[in-house]
Simulated scan of single mutants.
Amino acid sequence: MKDGQPNTAGAGRTDCAHCPLGKLDHFRRFDDDEQDYVEGFKTGELITETGATIIVDGAHNAHLYTLLSGWAFRYKIMEDGRRQILNYAVPGDLLGLQGSITGEMQHSVEALSPLTLCVFERDRVNELFSNHPDLAFDITWIAAREERILDEHLLSIGRRSAYERAAYLLAFLNRRGRLSGILTSKHNVIPITQQHVADTLGLSIVHTNKTLKKLKDRKLIAWGDGGCRVIDENQLAEIAGWEETEEKRRPFI
């Protein structure tokens, strides 16, 4: 990584025809023309370790990324060093789209676990709208969905109690992890720390620790060195008063 720009030299490449995301029921299938275009649109793959910065706030990044495997999070840092985590990314999510509109990124993205990302040239996004309207609609859908998620996060911070906020966040992350295929019965730990939770919910680490202990005591979650394992997603959602709209097969690029 140099000046916020990834180096894709020597990176491996997953054939789009055999994309692991396309095999999951959660994602829509490309037709042959779309698959050929996406294969040509993709310039390579980026593989990073936990803690790597993928996108830098204020940078003019030349790339878009689709998260192929792993967890990441979007965040902003205040002048005094305080961090606000805005959202989390799971396989199938598009990173860097904001820069295609504004010219520079207004947030940073960090790897929460080892990542593999498909890399695309940001300057070619207009081709989608000119030549592949269905794919262009997919990008619009992804942006609208991100807005809906952020609306729910804002509601959580503004109106839910600390207990409800924590329940919502963990139910939300667990559901997204399950649907994207990154959480399975064998690998079912969300790789976050209590500091990540605190920085997402706008709470002190002490308050966060006490709140998570209440959920743990009710046997709704289990916490270990590797992160959080959700035991009862439905009960967490009920505590938060959160009803997620069921999605049909969602698009990805």
Rank of each mutant, 00 (worst) to 15 (best):
M1A: 12
K2P: 00
D3T: 00
G4N: 01
T8R: 09
T14H: 09
D15A: 15
H18V: 03
L21C: 02
G22S: 14
G22W: 01
G22V: 02
F30K: 04
D32N: 05
D32S: 14
E34T: 05
Q35E: 14
D36F: 02
Y37E: 05
G40V: 00
G40F: 02
L46W: 15
I47T: 14
T48V: 13
T50I: 08
G51P: 01
V56W: 00
D57R: 11
G58C: 12
A59F: 01
H60L: 03
N61Q: 12
Y65W: 09
L67G: 01
L67R: 02
S69V: 06
F73N: 08
R74H: 08
Y75I: 00
I77N: 08
D80F: 05
R82Y: 09
N87R: 07
Y88F: 15
Y88I: 07
P91E: 02
P91G: 05
D93W: 04
D93T: 10
G96I: 07
L97W: 12
I101W: 08
T102R: 11
G103K: 08
Q106K: 10
H107N: 09
E110S: 13
S113I: 06
S113D: 08
L115Q: 06
C118Q: 12
C118N: 14
F120Y: 15
E121C: 05
D123L: 09
R124E: 07
E127S: 08
E127N: 13
N131D: 15
D134Y: 03
I139D: 00
I139W: 04
I149N: 09
R160S: 13
E164A: 15
L173H: 10
L173K: 12
N174K: 04
N174G: 05
G181N: 03
L183H: 08
T184W: 04
K186S: 13
V189C: 08
P191W: 09
P191K: 09
H196W: 04
L201R: 02
V206W: 04
N209S: 14
L212M: 15
K213A: 15
K213W: 07
K214N: 10
D217Q: 11
L220M: 14
A222V: 11
W223D: 06
D225T: 13
R229G: 03
V230D: 03
E233L: 08
N234R: 13
E238T: 12
I239S: 04
G241I: 11
E247R: 12
E247F: 06
R250D: 01
P251H: 06
